[in-house]
Amino acid sequence: MNRHAIWAIYRVEMARTVRTLLQSVVSPVISTSLYFVVFGAAIGSRIDQIDGVSYGAFIVPGLIMLSLLTQSISNASFGIYFPKFVGTIYELLSAPVSYLEIVIAYVGAAATKSTAIGLIILATSSLFVPLHIEHPFWMLAFLILTAVTFSLFGFIIGIWAGTFEQLQLVPLLIVTPLTFLGGSFYSIDMLPGIWRTITLFSPVVYLVSGFRWAFFGKADVSLGLSLGMTLAFLFACVAVIAWIFRTGYRLRT
């Protein structure tokens, strides 16, 4: 194991977060606060409770998931796309590092960042609504699991993307719609029949549901299903990455 290499990459990636603190940490916190104002105060005042939880508190897990997904994807995709774009990837490819080490370093850094942002948003939320977390361990486990899974997904996008436009394409066209269809701001029981069925195809439903269970002990789908679907997506990403490195896809052309 080339741990010096993992550490070197990880440190550079984390250093970029610190350098761009405003963009990478402050902006998600501000936008989440705005969600609270709009959904929690303006709309939430007209919705009593969902499953016995006040609407303001109900949307907290969804909001954290929303940021966690987008941040994991953007951090990880940018982290590997940027060296490709400026050409410094030559050094990574010529270095004595294994695929596993590359993935651990880049995905680890991206997941660390988004987990930290998730926790910051959680802390911010507690300023707006009284929060009680039913299963803190599972909350943290879902947080980290999701961060790692979607950082892996972002890593794939970063390797696939040939232009900055493509880099934005998947998050904008797929991830954002999936998140809104994923029950972040509502219980999927509130949707009319056909839409309810459609949302069950969104992996985000299972993430949010599991995460919400960790908070309130109540969920749209069972915990086992949530965990299973998340793990299934994780392994799908790992399989794609293994294939990318085995074939040199878009890396060693």
Binding site: H4, R11, A15, E91
Partner: peptide, 20 residues
């Protein structure tokens, strides 16, 4: 091709680490 926002010394330190 260089990491524009890194400092000179950290760029060299990174390369050394990357090579184990």
């Amino acid at each position: 091709t260089v990491e524009s926002f890194e400092t000179v010394r950290s760029a060299l330190t990174f390369s050394r680490g990357l090579f184990g």
